[in-house]
Write a protein that binds this DNA or RNA. Sequence first.
DNA 1: CTGAAAGCGCTTACAG
DNA 2: CTGAAAGCGCTTACAG
Lengths: 339, 339
Amino acid sequence: MTRIGSRTTGRPTLAEVARLSGVSPITASRALRGISTVAPELVEKVKQAATTLGYVANPAARALASAQSESIVVLIPSLSNQLFIETLEAVHEVMRPRGLEVLIGNYHYDIAEEENLIRNYLAYQPRGMLLTGFDRSDAAKQMLAASGVPCVHMMELGVQEQGMSVGFSQHQAGGAAAQHLLERGCQRLGFIAAQLDPRVMQRAEGFRQALVDAGRYASELQLLSSQPSSIGLGGELFRQLLAQHADVDGIFFCNDDLAQGAILEALRLGVKVPQQVAMVGFNDLPASAHMVPRLTSIRTPRAAIGRCAAQALLGLLDGKRGTVHNQDLGFELVVRESS
Amino acid sequence: MTRIGSRTTGRPTLAEVARLSGVSPITASRALRGISTVAPELVEKVKQAATTLGYVANPAARALASAQSESIVVLIPSLSNQLFIETLEAVHEVMRPRGLEVLIGNYHYDIAEEENLIRNYLAYQPRGMLLTGFDRSDAAKQMLAASGVPCVHMMELGVQEQGMSVGFSQHQAGGAAAQHLLERGCQRLGFIAAQLDPRVMQRAEGFRQALVDAGRYASELQLLSSQPSSIGLGGELFRQLLAQHADVDGIFFCNDDLAQGAILEALRLGVKVPQQVAMVGFNDLPASAHMVPRLTSIRTPRAAIGRCAAQALLGLLDGKRGTVHNQDLGFELVVRESS
DNA sequence: CTGAAAGCGCTTACAG
DNA sequence: CTGAAAGCGCTTACAG
């Protein structure tokens, strides 16, 4: 059973399928790949032989011969944010039916790690790549460009020269949160953020700008932590902001887990939400609708982003260049009880 | 830039590295793979040439020549349960430094989908496989056995004939939850479960048996739903159980998200936890410690399971057969405020 | 519409 | 300790 030292896999090969169906290996190959130049009756024969033998093509041989694998690579900064899981699942749903393997690379919000992943995955000769945002090392960008592998960027919206992208305006989303809290009559508006990745900072800037425009920006109410975002941290930061600025009456959180932690901490502290402090989260994660009070949040189209980015990439592979270069999928303010 | 129709990748090859360092390709190959028969000075030369050229080995060629890839496959039933994410991350941490690529297959709790994944991934000639539990189709088991690919099972504990496993006793964990609630003086003990995968059912059975032994088993208080587990469903099922059996005074939830939903729903309903109903969750997910009241839960060693299973698999690959065949990593009852 | 030849970029198996 | 030859299982490029 252990094939140590063996050169063969023991699995049926194309040659065997060809022999069984009485055609040449090349015809068998074409038949199995659905290349239309093969006579229908031969296709039938070959397919049947393949089934009989339990033939599954060797991806390594295929990749070596064609200088292309049947895989696409998705690079995401984190697996612990439910957000990206939903994006990944959507990508899978588009790619799997097309017979494309999805290789997942998690770079833990580390630019250097992303660069390494790109170097390694490029060796696999993927058909295409799905990247998160635009913020990466120059070396990474050069490798990608030199490889000629088609890329689509997810989550943020870029400009033409940055390549294709599918996402929404993080900046506008931050502005929408501010607008909503202002309309609710909040005077002293705070912002609590963690992780501080590029998209968080874009939301922060959108929030800030809207407050500046309204003459309500207060820098002392902006609480930024570079730690990973979590429920526990959200509670801590909320307590901290409240201790230092008891007059804060509205807070935008850069991610729902922070807001969930804050809302639970408020419950413990006896702080009334939204009467004393209104709260708005971001992403509308599954738990948010069930908080006490139910959390107002900005719903982001992460599944749609995964789906559309995958389809855009397939479009590139099929040679249909650039239908829409920067696809804006928008966002939605979901008003619940916390604001 | 577009290499459509080209046979080559445009990337540097082993032959070029060999030429630059003045050795044969085979020596270059050995030097780069760290095979000790190569003279140290040659190794140095070759490595330098590789760096100069930016050489990265072509995995497809390597896999084809050696009939083995540098990858291992991990099959998990779900990505939306945080549990498996932590296991995956731990597997990565062990495999990446060894240069092994981790292919992730999510079969969405679907036995047929798992069988397909196994068929497809076996074609990649993985070095080994990490599987979740023991419950799979006969065809899948046969393919695995026929392939000779080393496997380690995660999460559950098996018996010798089932192969290696790393996990804990799901049955005992269910029993421990029951024991704890009994010690707290609960009389009418309920069980709320969803998803109903094999491990959930083992916990259910452990819980049931402990209650039977204590003379406190009440079948009408067992609420099982085959829907996916979620916070929302937890709230619903809790309300339902309470409406039908107002005297329930202790509940074990098969997963923390259900318990979190119930604890939030209790807050809304004005049901005192633990005074009126004590609650115990399972897995101790990150949010649980922050609930109001803080949730008692059974902490499961999912990261350790990933790490140890990965190490056990590496042990198999290195030929160190079966140190421990069934590794029990235990679990821990974390008592907080909800019980 | 079909096929014989060559080759993708490595490693194995065998010599020396 | 090093290397020439062969081959892994496919597909490309070229004929016919």
